[in-house]
Simulated assay, not measured.
Amino acid sequence: MAIDFEVADHIATITINRPERLNALDQEHYEALSRAWMEVRDNPEIRVAIVTGAGERAFSAGADLKTYDPASREWSTFWTTQRDALLNRGLEVWKPVIAAINGYCVGGGLTLTLATDIRVAVPEAHFGLSEVKRGIIAANGGTQRLIRQVPHAIAMEMLLCGDMVDAETALRWGLINRIVEAPDLMDAATEYARQIARNAPLAVQASKELAVRGQDLDLVAGLRLEQMSARLLRETADAKEGPMAFAEKRLPNFEGR
């Protein structure tokens, strides 16, 4: 199976390891990727995840159109909405996810990126949603997340024209956080991950969930949800450890409880 999964120092690294196919995904690989995301969600030892692609050409070209035919699936699967759930297909993963984009990031590769929280890319990376050129749409969140993350006109240009843009354009549009040279890509992503993993994991996860859910709430409801979460967190051991470590001038030992 060409989905590599490693965990070290509270950081999970998921590598789409199919460089001969530009890290494109067929049904078997989508299922393996789903299992990886559920492990990130459910394993309390994991505090943050990095997702990347193998090789030097592509992060992911999305669905392998030569072998993957969604139309061949039984209609009954349409209502099994949590079957083989993916990060960009509605799986709720409140642990932060960092994308290390090592090349072409198109189609499902870009919709996956849109479901991550922090994105680092090499100068050679290109981004695009070309589905309309194939008679389909940018599903798995493409039509929903992009319009919430970049200005309306930019989102519509990408969705309706289907052309690719380079890394500098993606940075200017706010699709990615940083551009780094290829040899430094994983170091940059790992530094983000380590910085996050040092923080209190419950507070980190609460912050992500509040920020994401708040997009669908009015301000009053969002503020109230924030107040409730803050009150709950004050009862945790980590909330006591943080101020104590500060007073004692030492690094906190957060345990996620």
Rank of each mutant, 00 (worst) to 15 (best):
R148S: 05
T143P: 00
A49C: 08
T81M: 08
E31R: 15
P252S: 07
T113Q: 08
R234W: 04
L87N: 04
F127G: 08
I11L: 01
V132S: 07
E56H: 13
P243D: 04
S130L: 13
T111Q: 08
L159R: 09
N253E: 14
P44S: 04
G256K: 05
E92N: 06
I46F: 08
R172S: 05
V132L: 02
S72Y: 11
I136F: 04
Q205V: 08
E28A: 12
N199A: 15
I179C: 03
C161E: 07
N88Y: 04
D9L: 00
V220C: 08
D218Y: 13
L225Q: 13
N199Q: 14
D4Q: 05
M186H: 08
G109F: 04
E235V: 02
R119E: 00
L114V: 04
G109M: 07
A100R: 12
M38C: 07
L223E: 11
L33H: 03
M156D: 10
A2H: 04
A63E: 03
S76N: 08
R178S: 02
A155C: 03
D216C: 04
N23R: 01
H152D: 07
D26R: 02
E168H: 13
A24I: 00
Q227D: 10
K240S: 05
G214F: 05
A206P: 00
A211R: 12
L159Q: 02
E74Y: 14
E20Y: 00
V40N: 02
A8M: 02
V106F: 07
D238P: 01
R250E: 03
L202V: 12
L175K: 07
I147Y: 05
D238L: 13
F246M: 13
V204I: 10
E191W: 14
G109A: 11
A247N: 11
D9I: 00
T190R: 14
V106W: 03
I50F: 06
P183A: 01
N253S: 11
S76M: 06
T52V: 05
V93S: 02
E6I: 00
S72N: 10
F246C: 05
L65T: 15
K95C: 07
F78R: 14
H10E: 03
E226F: 12
N43W: 12
L129N: 04
Y104N: 02
K95I: 05
S207A: 15
T236I: 06
Q227M: 11
F254D: 01
H29S: 12
C161L: 13
K240Q: 10
A197Y: 06
D187N: 10
I3C: 07
E226L: 15
H29V: 01
E124Q: 14
T52G: 09
